[in-house]
């Protein structure tokens, strides 16, 4: 149920950032809105809920983008895996750690791209341009990310409450 909810949320974000966001024509560009969701799934969801959702959303992004096939699958998987590894010994949900984790996720996403471009022998973007774009992506992610993670957490709480209430109702009926 939770995995389905976050798949739907992810799908809505994919549609938003491919159909609505380009209309805003932001000079600085925006961040990948799915990164906060992937980080959240790594932080808050178990492997069996989180990983399938992450992989399905990555596949959707791969199919909608002109990126080398498998880029988003690789990037999101590694972001998710690193977040899960980090929460083993760090309290990532803390006030300062969450923005840091989100900024790190943006960095991982771009490093994966760089790796894939090197692997495929393709030309990457010019360094100053790339650095500027990555910096803006980080700024957007650090600003929007914590808010988005809070919204996802709120959604999760509501869903959990709804599930508990419907379980209680079912128990009373039986």
């Amino acid at each position: 149920m939770t995995a389905v909810l976050f798949l739907l949320v992810g799908a809505a974000l994919v549609v938003f950032q491919t159909s609505v966001l380009p209309l805003a024509d932001l000079r600085t560009g925006c961040c990948d809105l799915l990164v906060p969701l992937v980080v959240f799934l790594g932080l808050q969801r178990r492997l069996r809920d989180g990983l399938p959702a992450v992989l399905l959303l990555a596949a959707a992004m791969d199919s909608l983008s002109g990126v080398p096939q498998g880029y988003y699958l690789t990037a999101y998987f590694w972001i998710w895996a690193l977040v899960r590894w980090l929460i083993g010994f760090l309290r990532v949900a803390g006030t300062f750690m969450l923005p840091a984790a989100l900024a790190g996720a943006v960095l991982v996403e771009n490093l994966v791209l760089l790796g894939i471009l090197l692997l495929l022998g393709r030309e990457g973007p010019e360094v100053p341009l790339a650095l500027r774009a990555i910096a803006w992506q980080m700024v957007w992610t650090v600003v929007l990310g914590p808010v988005m993670v809070a919204v996802f957490a709120g959604l999760q709480r509501r869903l959990r409450r709804y599930q508990q209430q419907s379980q209680a109702r079912r128990a009373v009926r039986e």
């Binding site: 380009p22 002109g66 990126v67 774009a133």
Partner: peptide
């Protein structure tokens, strides 16, 4: 055109 590339590094449309 119904969608644009989500990646800032690549230019494609749906």
């Amino acid at each position: 055109v119904v969608g644009k590339d989500p990646s800032p590094w690549f230019r494609s449309v749906i």
